[in-house]
Design a protein around this nucleic acid. Structure first.
Ligand SMILES: [Zn+2]
Ligand SMILES: [Zn+2]
Ligand SMILES: [Zn+2]
Ligand SMILES: [Zn+2]
Lengths: 141, 141
DNA sequence: GCTTGAAGCTACAGCGGCTGTAGATCGTAT
DNA sequence: ATACGATCTACAGCCGCTGTAGCTTCAAGC
């Protein structure tokens, strides 16, 4: 049986985060010592490791909740699991496109500035006037 | 003189957001009608347009605050402005690297799944065991 | 058994950047 | 004069934690 701090270390999670997951029903209420301290077993360790790994891959807590629910139904088709992962991939790709456009625009701004007085700074000029931009971030974001 | 709703439309901002910017001191307290409604002039319009454009380029409100302060000192060197933009670029690049690694990992997961039963789903297996991953998102994230 | 100090407990506030709501008041066109 | 949309204040909620205050409990050393 693991104390919450040990569980935290083993999974690379903060203690408060574990309690937060419990509060929102993502982690189950664990057993307690007579004194009221939480004690965890291997099932909880696995579950938390799953959650943390999914978080590292960018899944939202809501998506993770669905994935955990689904993984309790081993005989079902995994189509729904795959759909969740596909959706996540599409979101990541969309963010990549947007970030890449941002990168280009920032690079252009910075490249245009000849590091003179604020009054003539090209960076500030671009920020003041979107007409100077190539990308259409107004629509994208 | 513009009412807040008109200012909102002209800059693509929500009315509440403008009031929020005022609350945190990013927008100045505007003049008011006898009845207490806010009225804005061109200076405020320009300032809000600047803020929104910088937001679209991913700058934090804190960075924008600095940029606005700096642009009130036209005779200074713009080195500090450039530094803020450089920092923003570096952050965008870092996020790009991280997101790209995520994209690869997600694609790999999804590609490995042969859409069978949940019990055999490769996506869930990868989520359960980071050893199956190539990327080191544990450290990056 | 006793002391100590780390680790645990609850409850709540705060982060960034908004967004939404309720219920009252204001402005303006007819 | 009336109607109706726009605006007002104040506050709660979103996500995913993180930090704090002020306690109590646990485990190791003596
Ligand atoms: Zn410059
Ligand atoms: Zn632009
Ligand atoms: Zn699958
Ligand atoms: Zn992994």
């Amino acid at each position: 049986m693991l104390a919450i701090g040990t569980l935290a270390k083993r999974t690379g999670t903060k203690v408060q985060t574990i309690r937060y997951y419990e509060q929102i029903g993502l982690m189950p209420e664990p057993g307690r010592t007579d004194g009221g301290q939480r004690r965890y077993g291997d099932a909880e360790l696995d579950r938390l490791a799953f959650i943390r790994h999914a978080r590292q891959l960018g899944f939202s807590l809501e998506a993770i909740r669905e994935l955990l629910d689904l993984s309790d139904m081993p005989d079902r088709s995994c189509a729904q699991v795959d759909a969740i992962a596909q959706k996540q991939l599409r979101e990541v790709e969309a963010r990549l496109v947007r970030l890449e456009a941002l990168r280009i625009e920032l690079q252009r701004m910075i490249g245009a500035c000849n590091a003179d007085r604020v009054a003539d700074c090209r960076i500030l000029e671009v920020l003041r006037d979107h007409e100077e931009c190539l990308a259409d971030h107004a629509a994208t974001g």
